[in-house]
């Protein structure tokens, strides 16, 4: 299962993804993506993501593209090296800034 918590502040939105970013969670992420409507910066904390598959990554790519088309800069926080490597291999570093560490 995937949980998505979204907190909004004047400085931007914080998304925290927890659980499995897989096919089952992809539709949830797509629904959340529909909320991106302006250029508010977004930080996506992936530190709670345990497992990823291609459908899940595909939903994340969709989210990053929607943000780009809305003019919203995105930072992905992914502390685990394997996930950072995967995101780079899949070209997601072209769509968002990757950073280690957890969201404040």
């Amino acid at each position: 299962m995937l949980d998505i918590e979204i907190a909004r502040a004047d400085s931007g939105a914080s998304w925290r993804l927890t659980g499995e970013l897989t096919a089952a969670g992809a539709s949830l992420l797509r629904r959340a993506t529909a909320q991106i409507r302006d250029a508010t910066p977004i930080t996506v904390d992936l530190s709670g993501v345990r497992t990823v598959d291609r459908p899940g990554l595909g939903a994340l790519v969709g989210m990053l593209l929607r943000a780009r088309w809305s003019g919203a800069p995105v930072q992905l926080l992914a502390p685990a090296a394997p996930l950072v490597r995967l995101l780079r291999e899949e070209g997601l570093d072209r769509l968002a800034r990757l950073a280690s560490g957890k969201a404040a």
């Binding site: 797509r30 291609r54 990554l57 595909g58 939903a59 790519v61 969709g62 593209l65 899949e90 070209g91």
Partner: peptide, 16 residues
Amino acid sequence: AVDESPWLMLGEHAVH
């Protein structure tokens, strides 16, 4: 369709 190799986007759907 939008090319984000190795992904291709069709609306909100991404195919690898």
